[in-house]
Amino acid sequence: MTESLDSAGKLNLAYWMRLTRTLDDALVAMWKQGRGVGGTFSGRGHEAIAVGAGYALGPDDVVAPMHRDLGCYLVRGMSPERILANQLGKEAGVTKGRDANLHGLGDLSLNIIGFVSHLPQSLPVALGAAMAFQYREEPRVALTFTGDGSSNTGLFHETLNLAAVQKAPFVLVVENNQYAYSTPLHEQMAIDDIVVRAPAHGVVGEIVDGNDVMAVYSAVAAAVARARRGDGPSLIEAKTMRMLGHAIHDGAEYVPAELLEKWQQRDPVTLWEAALVAEGALSEATLERLRGECHDEIEAAIEYAERAPLPDPATIGTGVYAT
């Protein structure tokens, strides 16, 4: 995996981020219109992290994304149809109506592990996948994401420690989006940078601009390469801002407006599109076409998901156990 990208790769990043934003915007709109089921989560502001990290993985690598990582599911091959169907509780959803919104969006045929609400739980699970690769001497890497909130849990530290002791091919991306639900960073921790928790456990740590997709991609690609070489785990702290509430019901009035305005100037999707236009890799016309394609793709997916059947209550008890 190279740590820089050719122009096709750079355009791919633009496509996946725009597709992510389009789907994210559609979800927010649908839920506000009362077309949703239960709640949903927006990952607005996190697109560069989710897409950049997901794009840096090889085809056989495993990822355990969370609820801000819509772009990662997409870039790893989960279709908008299946994601939308899941959000609407449909039989055609990834969980066949068993789990809500982005929760449980796991599919081992895509090397994606689904998450539970107890967020740091994905950390040791991804580490275990990495330990399996190491045990079988397969050149594969496991990557997972977590937030500033769960970086305060014991399990975050337990996992980093265990990953370092095992020298496992494991990469952890911490999406520091300034808030754990309504609680700002300074009420969560007495440090400025979460990354300082990495060297305490013997894990390599790095800070990246989470709104710069190329920076995220490069840092994650380097960490993945290091893991694949057998040089052990890494933590990447991607600093960003959660641009909407914790979930759809949350207006996030507790976030100062000037903070959001500041981060809005650095919107990760438009930032990357503007950079590509500036360097001549993308024309305004191509960009317009790209946006149109994403719009059409998501509209078709919505139509499919809304028409898809709900699960049959008679199936409620199936699948609790593997045969």
């Binding site: 495993v62 081992l108 592990i113 739980q121 950390l123 040791p124 699970v125 991804a126 580490l127 275990g128 996948a129 990495a130 330990m131 399996a132 690769f133 045990y135 496991a142 014991g154 399990l155 337990e158 996992t159 420690n161 265990l162 002791v165």
Partner: peptide
Amino acid sequence: PRRVRNMPMTELAFIGAASGMALMGMRP
């Protein structure tokens, strides 16, 4: 030690790791 592996005193993490290994086809 490759197959009988001492763990640090972190049950939450190594039981979670067992789940990850199991998802990848192992039987910890």
